[in-house]
Amino acid sequence: MSRRQDFKSGIKQAVPIIMGYLPIGIAYGLLAGKAELGIIGTVLMSIFVYAGSSQLICINMLGQNTGIFTIVMMTFVVNLRHLLMSASLSLNLKNTDRRILPIAGFFITDETFAVGSSSIEKYNHKGYFFLGLGLVSYLGWSLSSWLGAGLGNILPELNSSALDFVLPAMFIALLVLQLKNRLDILVAVIAGLLSLLFVQILPGNWNIIVATVIAATVGVGIEKWMGNI
């Protein structure tokens, strides 16, 4: 497979991600466009920051007159979970042209990581596969926030939460694909339960980070222990 073909495969796999980004991006654009940011600020934030949940939190905090330093710190904490995804992807992108790593890093989101990590193994040019996947997802996010900000008021109001279920359903499919043995299932169950527990007591997105770190550590522990008996 050539670089070009792997890049194209990445583009194709981004389709469910764009479907999921569209309603969230429009919702973000609607809210942000109405706030002081205006259309330009709304779209610039999607282009430069490209992190949906932190952008929505930012708009919410601006509405409560929060200072910009606090907002930037909050953004850091909310997006710190990408550290784990970036570390995990580094295993796959070891032999990739180093010049594309900053772009690949910029394209890491919950969704591109989920899709990417479940199928990247298959490709020879893993970096180019991830660039294709990331680029289209990025354009989808930026365009949908522009749509929300620019045309928000004339878009028909949708009365169903079916679109809000696109990303959870995609995560279900990808999680199932990731579970290759009983230990993986155990790790996922532990991570899910801990995340539910911590989401109710920890601020920001710390529930995701803490639950993932503990569950992965338990997984390695059990693996070593079973190997030793």
């Binding site: 995990s88 999680l175 993986d184 996922a188 899910g192 995340s195 995701i208």
Partner: peptide
């Protein structure tokens, strides 16, 4: 490396459950 290999299933479950 072993630890990092558990990150995808763990993080997907941690994102999905509260969602």
């Amino acid at each position: 490396v072993d630890w990092l290999r558990f990150i995808p299933p763990a993080i997907l479950a941690a994102l999905l459950a509260p969602g």
